[in-house]
Simulated scan of single mutants.
Amino acid sequence: MWVSFFGVVLIAWSALFAMAVTSPLAGVPSDLWSALCGGAIDAGLGTLFAMWLIMSAAMMMPTFVPTLRVFLDLGHAGAARPVEALALVLGYVAIWVAGSLLGTVAQRFLAGLNLVAADGSSLSLWLTAALLLGAGLYQFTSAKAACLAKCRMPLTYFLENWSPGLRRSLRMGLHLGAYCLGCCWALMALAFVGGTMNLIWMGAATLFMVLEKLPEIGKPLTLPAGVLLLASSGLVTVMALTS
């Protein structure tokens, strides 16, 4: 299970790295690869959607590791079967497939307004300020806190919602994916600040989201991150006013 799980993560990050250095992978048509590497603005929605799927898999699957580990520990105690763990992961992934679709539509919409470049990075200081402001404010909301509570305490969630069976495991995966999306969507939207093909941003964001979901480490990070994002938004606003 773990080999397969981390194999997908490794493949996703390898693809992102290859896209970032614009080196085609064997067997991938050069025109498709160019579209993926360039943010796929001039390509179809399907190509852009593929890029978002790869990015979501690389960034969000590592944040699910603590939850999956708890589920597998319950399986070792005889409460679940390996196939139910697979159903849990599929439910979680399904939510991020939907999240990737939202990201695709958002990028195409912003590109149509000439607010983001081909690589997904913001062309407008006002858009950058708004994204930073929204992400910063969301760090202080009850919705963020509620979603983080579920992500940080997966054992509590399982004890409250547990019942055997593939359908129930899939449903729990969907629920946990929704909580994860609710926790991370504003941070993921900052892709339009750093660029959807910016490896530095993706690596830093992934590390922060992984740490934020850890109870002992994450609690001291959430509010200071919000303050930092709000301060950054203020700085960018000043730059926009004086430019």
Rank of each mutant, 00 (worst) to 15 (best):
L176I: 13
G39M: 06
M55L: 11
L132W: 11
M59Y: 01
G112E: 14
F109N: 08
G99P: 02
F6D: 06
C183F: 11
A43I: 10
M59E: 02
A205L: 11
G75W: 10
W201V: 08
I54H: 04
L221T: 12
N161T: 15
L72F: 06
P154C: 10
L137M: 11
Y179R: 08
L36C: 07
M188H: 06
V83N: 03
S56W: 01
P24K: 00
R152D: 14
A146H: 14
A146R: 13
T22M: 04
A191K: 00
G194I: 01
L235P: 01
G134F: 04
G7E: 15
G182W: 07
W185L: 10
S169I: 02
W162S: 12
W201S: 05
S14W: 07
A135T: 05
G194D: 02
L155M: 11
F6E: 09
A204W: 03
L137Q: 12
M172G: 13
L174D: 14
T222C: 11
R171K: 04
L110M: 14
S23K: 02
A135H: 01
M239S: 10
F49G: 09
L72C: 08
A231L: 10
Y138Q: 06
P220E: 05
M202Q: 14
D73K: 01
Y157A: 14
G78D: 12
G182S: 11
W2L: 09
I200Y: 03
Y138R: 00
P62G: 06
A80V: 08
L176A: 01
P24F: 03
G136V: 03
A118M: 13
M19T: 02
K219M: 06
L221N: 07
L148C: 07
H175A: 07
M61P: 04
Y92C: 07
G44C: 11
T22I: 08
L101D: 11
V193P: 04
W126Q: 10
V28Q: 03
V9S: 05
E160D: 15
P24D: 05
T242V: 13
A85Q: 12
T67E: 14
V93T: 14
S142I: 09
A50D: 08
V21L: 09
M61S: 04
